[in-house]
Design a protein around this nucleic acid. Structure first.
Length: 907
DNA sequence: CACGGTTAGGTTTTT
DNA sequence: CCTAACCGTG
C-alpha cells in the first residue's frame, strides 16, 4: 500500500463491517470482472463507493487509476461527495463522471487526431433537428413524410450501434458523396437510401462545423480509441479500475467504449495475481445494474449488455444484492407482483426487514384536475396531520405534459412544490440565443448557431440574406461565417443587406477578441455578449410581460457562468458551454440533505435512483401509463412495466396510486381506463379511497335510468353534475350475477385495442349498482360545491357499447370492499348531490378584459393572484389597454403582469 | 422585411 | 392546448 497524504486510509472493518454478506463480498471482490445485480433500494451506491475506497486502500491503487461512470451529473456529484467523506479530498480529482462528460474530456485532449478541433461544439437535439431539416430541404426530401425527428432517430440508431457512414452508404447509396451539391436521390421512396444519404451529409456538415451531437461523443471516442493505438494505450495504462453504474441502461456504443477503455480485447494477459500499478492486462471492471430497471431502450439502451455480462467478460462473477433497505414489504410486494408479469426475466427475490407498513392508497378521480385536487389536499393533510415534510413527498408521472394539472392543484391548495424537468433552462429561447452567440464566438465554423443569431435580435437580415450567404459559401466550400466576412464579394448583394451584414461581422469580430482576452471569465463574456448583441436591449424595451422573465433568465445565465467560474479552477468559455450542453433534468434536484420545503414533481424517468418517504404515482391509466404508443408492442410494454417498477420502488413508506377517468388530451377530453398495472398488483395491497370515478358509476347505475340519449355534450354535463363525489368508501353492492367468475377486473378488455376511447364513443364500466357511503364525503369539496343545477339533467351514455369489465366485475377485490360496505353503508347520504366545476376555472376566460383600471392601483397595495397568491404592488405603468403592473409575490417572485389579463383582485 | 393572424399538426421518456 | 409554418398586409 502506498501513502498519499490526501487519502484517508480506511480499515477493512470500517469499509465492510456494517454491510450485509453480499454487499461485503461485492466490495472486496478481487477479479477482472464483477457484475453487481443490485435490486431497487439494495444500497448499491453505498457498495460502489465502498468498493472504490477498498480498491484505493486495500488494493493499493492510485486515485488517478480509477474511472467511475454514472448516468447523470447529479449522480456523479453525489458519488464524489460520498467518496470525499470516505476517503478525503482526493476524490475531487478523480474521474467520476457521466459517459458523456468523460468522452468530452477524452475528445478535448486527443480529438484532433480524428479531425475534431479543440473548440468543438456539442449540438443539442434542437440544433441537430435544424441541421437535418436543412439537409432534407436541400435534397428535396419531403419532411412531412420523413420528419427530422424520425431521420434523427435513425441516425441515432446508427451511431448507438457504431454503424459508420461508410458502411451505410456502401449498402444503400453507393453513388452518394457527401458535400456534393444538387445530388438527386435515385428512386423516390427508398427509405433506407434517404436515411443513408442524410446520415452521410449530416456527418459531413457536423465535421465542417467542427461540431458533434450527443451520440457522437460516445461513438467518436470509440473511433478515437480504435484508430489511434497510442491513445488507447494511454488510457489502458491510466485506468486500472473501471466502474459503471446503471449498466442496464448502456447502449452498444457505451458497452464497446468500456471494453476499449479497459483494453479487454487488447490481447494482453492479465496478471496472475494482484493488480498493482502499471500495465498488467486489462483493467478490472465493475458494473452495477438491475435489468428490471432498464428504462432507456428507446434511447438505444441494450438490456443484453447486462444479461450477457458473464459471457462477455472473461472470468466474470455476479453478486446479487437482494436485501432492500428502502421500502416496506407492502411496497415491495406490489413492485414484485407487477414486474413478475414481464416475460423472460430472471426471477429475483427482493426482501426487506422493514415490515409490512401501510397499505398502498388508491384513488380514482373523475378528471385529471380532480386527481390533482385530491392529491394536493392529501399532501396538505399529510403535512398538517402527520407532520410530514413537503420535501419528503414526490409526485411522479409518465410524461411531462401531465405536470400542468398537478401544478394547478398544488397552487390552489397552497402546497409549495418544485418541478423538475420540463422545458429546461438551457432550452429556453432567449437562453439558447445567448448560448448561440457564445458558440459562434468559440467556434465560428458552427453554421447552425451562427445562422441562428444572424437576425436575433432583428437587424434586417432575414431569410433572403441568409440564403444568399449560404449559397455563396456552399459553392466555394466555405463556412457561413466566411461568407459573412466576404459579403461584399457576393454577386447581387445590395447595400441594404450588405450594411447590416458588415455591422454583424464587425460585432462578432469584436466579441471574439473580447472573448479571447477574457477566456477565463465566461461570465464577463456573457455580459459583453448580452450588451453588444442587443439581445438584452430588445427584451427590455418590449412590452410583453413575458419578456421580463426572459431578461431574468438571461441574468441568471450570467450567474450560472459566474458560478461555474468560481467552482472551476481551469475555467474557460468552451468549458462553460460544455457544462450547459450536458446537463440533465435530474441535475437540478437539490441535494439530498437539504430540506427544500417543497413537494417534488418529476417524470418517472427522472425519478430513477431517487427515493422518497411518500410517493404519488399519478395517471395510472391505459394510454397514459402505459403510454399509448407503447401498449401494442410487447417489448415496449415490458419497458413500461419496468418503469412502473421503478416508480413503485421509489417509495419508502407510503405509496399512492391515482388515476383519472377523464383526461384532456389536445384540449379534448378522453375517457381513460384504469392502468393494467393496477390490476397486476394484488388486491389486498391497495386500499381504495375511491374505487371508481363518478362517470363510471353513473354510467353503470341509475344514470341510465335518469336520462335519455342526448347530444355530444351529454356526459360532460353529467360529469359536471356528479364529479364531486369524494367518497372515502366506494362499495359496490353487487347483484348476484355480478359476482362472476373472472378473477381480474376488466382483464378481458385489456390487450384489446379499445383503450382510452375518445370523446363520443362512450363505453361503460362497472357493474349494476352502487351504494355510496361516506362520513366525510361532501365537506372537503364544500367550498367549490354548488347545488345541482336544475337546467342540466343527468345524462347517460346513450347507445353505449360496454367494453369494459361489465361481466367480469370485481371479484376478489370486491369481496374485501364488500365487507367494508356492510359496516358503512348505514351512513349513506341522501339523494342530494353536490357537485363542483369540472375544471378549476383556468385563465382562459381571462383572455379578454377583466375591467380592472390601472389607476385604481397604487404602489404598496395588496393584491391577490389566482396562481401566485398574495402580493404587493411595486410599480404601475399606465399604457392604456396594455397597462403593466409589477407585483412582488414573495416566494413566488416578482412578476410583471398585463393588468387586462391578470387574474388578480385588489384587496 | 417585419408583423399579425390563421391553420394544421403533434405528445412519451433524455444524455 | 400548444407550436411551428404559412400567408397576407404595412
Amino acid at each position: 500500500m502506498h501513502n498519499d497524504p490526501e487519502v484517508i486510509v480506511r480499515s477493512p472493518q470500517e469499509l465492510v463491517g456494517d454491510l450485509n454478506e453480499q454487499q461485503a463480498q461485492a466490495v472486496q471482490f478481487r477479479g477482472p470482472a464483477l457484475l453487481i445485480g443490485a435490486g431497487a433500494g439494495s444500497g448499491k451506491t453505498r457498495v460502489l463507493t465502498r468498493r472504490i475506497a477498498w480498491i484505493l486502500t486495500q488494493f493499493g491503487a492510485w486515485p488517478s487509476q480509477i474511472l467511475a461512470i454514472t448516468f447523470t451529473n447529479k449522480a456523479a456529484a453525489e458519488m464524489r461527495e460520498r467518496l470525499s467523506a470516505l476517503i478525503g479530498p482526493v476524490a475531487q480529482r478523480m474521474w467520476v463522471s457521466t459517459f458523456h462528460s468523460a468522452c468530452v474530456r477524452i475528445l478535448r485532449r486527443d480529438g484532433e487526431r480524428i479531425g475534431l478541433k479543440s473548440g468543438f461544439t456539442i449540438y443539442d437535439t434542437a440544433d441537430c433537428e435544424r441541421l437535418v431539416k436543412l439537409i432534407a430541404t436541400d435534397f428535396n426530401i419531403d419532411i412531412k413524410r420523413y420528419t427530422p425527428r424520425q431521420i434523427l432517430a435513425r441516425i441515432s440508431d446508427y451511431k448507438n450501434n457504431l454503424t459508420g457512414v461508410r458502411e451505410t452508404l456502401a449498402q444503400y447509396a453507393p453513388d452518394f458523396r457527401p458535400g456534393t451539391r444538387g445530388f438527386r436521390i435515385g428512386r423516390v421512396g427508398n427509405v433506407e437510401e434517404i436515411y443513408a444519404i442524410v446520415y452521410a451529409e449530416y456527418q459531413h456538415r457536423l465535421a465542417l462545423a467542427n461540431a458533434v451531437d450527443f451520440d457522437d461523443l460516445i461513438a467518436r471516442t470509440v473511433e478515437l480509441l480504435r484508430t489511434q493505438p497510442d491513445v488507447a494505450e494511454y488510457y489502458h495504462r491510466k485506468f486500472r479500475y473501471i466502474l459503471v453504474d446503471e449498466y442496464q441502461d448502456t447502449n452498444h456504443a457505451q458497452y464497446v467504449l468500456v471494453r476499449e477503455l479497459a483494453g479487454v480485447d487488447s490481447g494482453e494477459r492479465p496478471a496472475p495475481d494482484a493488480p498493482g500499478v502499471g500495465r498488467q492486462g486489462p483493467a478490472w471492471i465493475t458494473v452495477v445494474g438491475d435489468s428490471d430497471q432498464s428504462i432507456y431502450a428507446f434511447r438505444g439502451a441494450d438490456i443484453s449488455n447486462i444479461q450477457d455480462f458473464e459471457q462477455d467478460f472473461p472470468d466474470a462473477r455476479t453478486i446479487m444484492l437482494e436485501q432492500n433497505y428502502r421500502s416496506t414489504q407492502t411496497i415491495l410486494d406490489a413492485a414484485n407482483a407487477v414486474i413478475a408479469h414481464n416475460e423472460g426475466r430472471k426471477p429475483k427475490k427482493l426482501w426487506t426487514a422493514a415490515g409490512k407498513g401501510a397499505p398502498i392508497t388508491g384513488y380514482a378521480a373523475d378528471t385529471a384536475q380532480l386527481e390533482a385536487h385530491w392529491i394536493a389536499h392529501e399532501i396538505r393533510r399529510l403535512h398538517q396531520e402527520e407532520g410530514l415534510r413537503y420535501s419528503d413527498i414526490a409526485i411522479m408521472y409518465r410524461a411531462n405534459a401531465q405536470s400542468r394539472s398537478l401544478e394547478e392543484g398544488l397552487i390552489q391548495a397552497h402546497v409549495p412544490y418544485q418541478l423538475i424537468g420540463g422545458t429546461k433552462f438551457y432550452e429556453r429561447r432567449e437562453v439558447k440565443d445567448a448560448l448561440a452567440y457564445l458558440q459562434a464566438i468559440v467556434n465560428p465554423a458552427d453554421g447552425i448557431n451562427m445562422r441562428r443569431i444572424l437576425n436575433v435580435p432583428k437587424r434586417g437580415l432575414g431569410a433572403r440574406a441568409e440564403s444568399m450567404v449560404t449559397a455563396w459559401a456552399d459553392e466555394r466550400g466555405l463556412t457561413f461565417w466566411q461568407g459573412v466576412e466576404q459579403a461584399e464579394r457576393i454577386e447581387g448583394m445590395t447595400t441594404r443587406t450588405l450594411n447590416p451584414l458588415r455591422r454583424f461581422a464587425a460585432m462578432m469580430t469584436q466579441l471574439r477578441a473580447f472573448a479571447a482576452e477574457h477566456d477565463r471569465q465566461p461570465s464577463q463574456v456573457v455580459a459583453e455578449v448580452l450588451a453588444q448583441s442587443g439581445l438584452l436591449e430588445e427584451l427590455r424595451k418590449s412590452t410583453d410581460p413575458q419578456d421580463q422573465s426572459r431578461v431574468e433568465n438571461l441574468s441568471q445565465l450570467q450567474s450560472v457562468a459566474a458560478e461555474y467560474e468560481q467552482n472551476t479552477p481551469d475555467a474557460t468559455l468552451a468549458g462553460f458551454l460544455e457544462t450547459t450542453a450536458l446537463v440533465a433534468d435530474s441535475d437540478q434536484l437539490p441535494d439530498e440533505a437539504e430540506d427544500s420545503g417543497k413537494v417534488t414533481l418529476m417524470t418517472l424517468h427522472t425519478a430513477k435512483g431517487l427515493e422518497y418517504p411518500v410517493v404519488f404515482l399519478t395517471g395510472m391509466e391505459q394510454g397514459t401509463f402505459p403510454h399509448s404508443r407503447a401498449m401494442e408492442d410487447t417489448s415496449e410494454l415490458s419497458e413500461e412495466r419496468r418503469l412502473s417498477y421503478v416508480g413503485i420502488t421509489r417509495a419508502k413508506r407510503r405509496l399512492y396510486l391515482t388515476r383519472a377517468a377523464v383526461r384532456a388530451q389536445w384540449g379534448r377530453a378522453s375517457e381513460m381506463m384504469p392502468s393494467q398495472f393496477l390490476d397486476e398488483i394484488p388486491d389486498g395491497l391497495i386500499d381504495w379511497k375511491r374505487r371508481e370515478a363518478g362517470v363510471e358509476r353513473m354510467r353503470s347505475g341509475w344514470g341510465h335510468a335518469a336520462g335519455g340519449s342526448r347530444g355530444r355534450d351529454d356526459w360532460e354535463e353529467g360529469l359536471d353534475e356528479f364529479g364531486g363525489w369524494d367518497d372515502d368508501f366506494t362499495e359496490p353492492s353487487y347483484g348476484g350475477s355480478s359476482y362472476g367468475g373472472s378473477s381480474s377486473y376488466g382483464r378481458s378488455s385489456y390487450g384489446s385495442s379499445s383503450y382510452g376511447s375518445s370523446y363520443g364513443s362512450s363505453s361503460s364500466y362497472g357493474s349494476s349498482s352502487r351504494v355510496r357511503s361516506s362520513d366525510d364525503a361532501a365537506p372537503r369539496f364544500g367550498s367549490a360545491a354548488r347545488e345541482r343545477s336544475s337546467s342540466s339533467s343527468s345524462s347517460t351514455s346513450g347507445g353505449a357499447h360496454f367494453s369494459y369489465g361489465v361481466s367480469s366485475s370485481p371479484s376478489s377485490r370486491s369481496l374485501r370492499f364488500g365487507s367494508a360496505a356492510s359496516s358503512h353503508s348505514s351512513s349513506s347520504r341522501s339523494g342530494k348531490v353536490t357537485t363542483r366545476r369540472t375544471s378549476p376555472k383556468p385563465a382562459s376566460s381571462l383572455d379578454k378584459d377583466n375591467r380592472l383600471d390601472i389607476n385604481d392601483f397604487r404602489v404598496g397595495d395588496k393584491v391577490s393572484h389566482d396562481s401566485f397568491g398574495l402580493g404587493t404592488v411595486l410599480e404601475t405603468q399606465d399604457k392604456g389597454r396594455n397597462s403593466i403592473i409589477t407585483v412582488d409575490f414573495g416566494s413566488a417572485g416578482v412578476k410583471r403582469l398585463m393588468l387586462r389579463v391578470a387574474p388578480i383582485e385588489k384587496l
